[in-house]
Design a protein around this nucleic acid. Sequence first.
DNA 1: TTCCTTAATAAGAATTATTACTAATTATAG
DNA 2: CTATAATTAGTAATAATTCTTATTAAGGAA
Lengths: 150, 150
Amino acid sequence: MTSEQLLNKKVEELKEACKKHGMRVTPQRIEIFKEVAKSCKHPDAEAVYEAVKHKMPNVSVDTVYRTLASLEELNMIFRVDNQLPKARFDADLRPHSHFICVQCNEVYDIFLESDEKIQIPKNASSFGEIKDINIQIRGICNKCLKNSTK
Amino acid sequence: MTSEQLLNKKVEELKEACKKHGMRVTPQRIEIFKEVAKSCKHPDAEAVYEAVKHKMPNVSVDTVYRTLASLEELNMIFRVDNQLPKARFDADLRPHSHFICVQCNEVYDIFLESDEKIQIPKNASSFGEIKDINIQIRGICNKCLKNSTK
DNA sequence: TTCCTTAATAAGAATTATTACTAATTATAG
DNA sequence: CTATAATTAGTAATAATTCTTATTAAGGAA
């Protein structure tokens, strides 16, 4: 399946999710979702706004923030846990972790190998009902390492 | 060792770290650090400010933010990865994870049992140089679960 | 001890990210 | 076709954090 087809499939999922929750399928919603879904950059709200503006010059900042929030409620996207001032979004729902570069703030996806499995700490469930688990690895990415040795 | 003694020990560590890095030991630094170190609440900057104000009524918001940042540089405290608008701080340097309640935003420490070990995803190091790893479990804490069934 | 350099602080203004509001307009989905 | 959810534009509010400038005080030197 090409990335184009994969994206279309995700858009279809979004449409269904909207209908299921009595939300209208609007071009803005589609575009904003596609922007997050097609990027591996884990964009922030501003980046999404800038990108969507190319296709829809009239889109408003407000719509982007509102839409990102509703896509999150639909569980079509989620926020990446980070220590940065801006929220970063991810539309890849497969369980995975993130490598966050402390220098350039780039966020990379880390997928586990087939024989690996995310380990939930034994006594985690003693604190309450678990919804999800997030793992971030912080460090300096290869790109930044390369630049600093120049 | 009492918690009082433990706190004093940590303060001594801070003083040494300051000297080592050519940073002055100021009452504000001590107080702000103690406030984070003695709490298990993972306070945000505002909470630290409010608490410190009781002892030092003239302390400024700015000093709290600046000091928290420099304590972080000294590796005496760190930020808890979260999706909340406010940064939360932790002075417990022992490796541990966090349970974050999505309802009340409380942050609980999760320590691994002696036979457990944090698993770093195999291909994490392929992205760059790893500095640290963070695990958050998101869910609804026992307190909130109890309140919602009432 | 006193002096001196300069790091650190206080106070409040400024900035940044995000959210909210208004009212008029658009366009989805039944 | 129609009811109304969603959007736009523009502005305002808010919340978290950072900057600016004058002042203070830590800690080394005399």
